[in-house]
Design a protein around this nucleic acid. Structure first.
Lengths: 154, 154
DNA sequence: AAATGAAATGATATGTTGTAACGTGGTACC
DNA sequence: GGTACCACGTTACAACATATCATTTCATTT
């Protein structure tokens, strides 16, 4: 991926869940059954998943209703610990393919098929932060997303 | 404003509504009473306004309930014609201070006071588009927002 | 002026996303 | 065995957004 200035371990499947668990416990948080289930469901999506989508699937998986409320709580925890990202323009969430590695993410969201691609371009997001700071703003969280159509849908 | 590479007429108050009217009619759309009211209410906000906020105020102003869906319709029209912008990370809208002038907007949203600053940095947003296109993506609408705290709130 | 047709708005309902408040159950520690 | 903490459950509700169909408005044509 040309926009990667450095190398990532891109985790997949069980490997990814494993990395997520390590990252979360390293942060002093617990890796509970509920969190594992929510993470694994989130990780199966190839497009941003809404909290309600996740709640439905986790409910099925567990044979017992899991309320959106609980899902939000855990998604917030994931986002805070960099295991997942929120895609603002889609009101939805994506598992982070390389937990433990901090980035200002850039998402490309296809308006046709709904898929989202994650690219990293640290120099670009650095410039976003700089522009904000030049305006006297204390930048905390850049939100850089692009709506359009992906290569497959063109 | 240092990040402006070129000069803008920054409109205010009645002047702004006037410019908005010109821009909308120039696009072949009508400038109705309802649209004028919604625009003027939107323009009074110094922070992003939700469609429901606007609906409430316009309802007051007219002495008659205006339903959110009517507001959404007109806000969509404004956004499509560049009279207003949607702030994705706030689910809210801002009047555009220079209708008729096309930009990929950058918003700085203060998590403390809720105010939003609009900066233009065409080279930056051009780079966002470029990065997306380099990934085989057909970029239509960059969403560049920054959450943080403004100079006043620091 | 009446008829017509297109555009704008109204009314109602419902769908989707997100939080607040408080209760319950487990676990570690003393 | 209290008690303090944390995760999760339950319920209710707030906030955001759209779908559908009815009605009004207004310009155009006759």
């Amino acid at each position: 991926m040309a926009t990667h200035a450095h190398h990532h371990h891109e985790h997949h499947g069980h490997d990814l869940a494993d990395a997520a668990q390590k990252a979360l416990t390293a942060a002093g948080e617990q890796w509970t059954d509920m969190r594992a289930d929510i993470f694994s469901v989130l990780a199966t999506f190839d497009k941003p998943a809404s909290a309600y989508d996740i709640a439905d699937l986790v409910s099925q998986k567990r044979g017992k209703r899991v309320a959106p409320n609980s899902v939000y709580r855990i998604l917030d925890l994931f986002v805070a610990n960099n295991l997942a990202s929120r895609v603002e323009s889609a009101n939805a969430y994506l598992a982070n393919a390389h937990p433990g590695c901090l980035h200002d993410c850039i998402f490309l969201i296809c308006d046709s098929c709904g898929s989202a691609t994650h690219i990293d371009d640290d120099s670009l997001t650095r410039n976003v932060r700089k522009a904000a700071e030049a305006a006297g703003f204390n930048a905390v969280r850049p939100v850089v997303e692009v709506r359009g159509t992906c290569a497959d849908c063109d």
